[in-house]
Design a protein around this nucleic acid. Sequence first.
DNA 1: TTGTTTACAAACGTATTCGTATGTAACAGC
DNA 2: GCTGTTACATACGAATACGTTTGTAAACAA
Lengths: 216, 216
Amino acid sequence: MQNAMRRTKADAEKTRETILATAEQLFLRNGVAHTSLEQVARASGVTRGAIYWHFQNKSHLLNEMLNQVRPRPEKLAERLNAPTATHPLQNLRDLFVEIMAGLAGNEQKRNILTILLLRCEFTDELSDAEERHTDFINQFIALSEEQFGCERVRLRPGISARLAARLLHATLIGMLSDRLRDPALFDTQAEAPAMIDALFSGLLVDWQIAGHGASA
Amino acid sequence: MQNAMRRTKADAEKTRETILATAEQLFLRNGVAHTSLEQVARASGVTRGAIYWHFQNKSHLLNEMLNQVRPRPEKLAERLNAPTATHPLQNLRDLFVEIMAGLAGNEQKRNILTILLLRCEFTDELSDAEERHTDFINQFIALSEEQFGCERVRLRPGISARLAARLLHATLIGMLSDRLRDPALFDTQAEAPAMIDALFSGLLVDWQIAGHGASA
DNA sequence: TTGTTTACAAACGTATTCGTATGTAACAGC
DNA sequence: GCTGTTACATACGAATACGTTTGTAAACAA
């Protein structure tokens, strides 16, 4: 009726992306559970019919949204095991800084991670999303542990590779959480290097602040 | 009908507490938004009438629940400014360890904090809860910054008191998050001291591992 | 003893929300 | 040019969920 109703493949894809982008905004503002598909449809200029055509239901829609920015685990391993010219933990350090920088520079990543951490309830209906999330966390910790366990790495006495890995992950998650909750809290991009270097100095006996001279 | 229906003051209070305890379990399992007051009522052995008698609505019920374990800000300041026999940051360190230990030892605290961090959406309806939460965070950071800014504290070059405070808070939140998400991830009580000491070693030039000898 | 208040239960009415089922206009292939 | 399929809009039905109102037995006060 109201629309010209010409629906080519490209149009359909555009509709799908509009729905995803609109849902992103609404989920971010109102929370996932507090956003109905009717609201998403209206704000997208379509009806629920369109949403149910493109997605099975709300949780599948959310999963598709998360998949847009979810890092693939194999990329992580590949990234960390690349050869490093300086310290064996240089890759891990750089990754940390990159993650924080990527968050500052990419609004979509920021929005979706905010939804994941602050605007959604991990319940049965999202159990597969939670599971993959947990898997990713465990893999991050396992890979970090490998890095810290490298024989060239000299941990402080009393610090095991596993403990170092978990402390690193906790710090990462905490910084993301704090930063997402209050964007004005600190300048992620500028201060992340100092923070990670401080952390590494606490974990290692021989960490030289490598941020500005040795790498890149 | 079914109940003897004798309702003294004590009975009413018991009903109220039952509702709170039941809601705690259901919120924890299913998330706040995905739990209806009808479900809470049934699991409590009452009707919604009882819930609406004791609480205005679901968000007020949640707020009352949070108030059961919310630390009062003035306690925090008092705690941190107590005289310390050893290092000026000893109080901050001990507080960190205590928080993690309290979490391990107190199921109610653990449940409610889990609800707050993982099972609830911060939306308009919970805006006052969120506001107080944010206020508490900012106060924690401000107080920590004061501690780190103490003249007897020797921060590493490149580390400001504010940065140290924010890194500490991020690490605390991250450890709580990780631990609540996966209770088997690490032994909070046993490993927290090593973690905080590692962090402080990275922030300060003169931090001696003080966990086992210096402080009572 | 009687009236009032407490502490709920039960009933009411409305508004969403979901999933599905059906209708339909335009495109794509032949 | 006809047909099947795509990409939706519309309609349907059932199930909550919420907040309020009303009913009521027991406690409590006088």
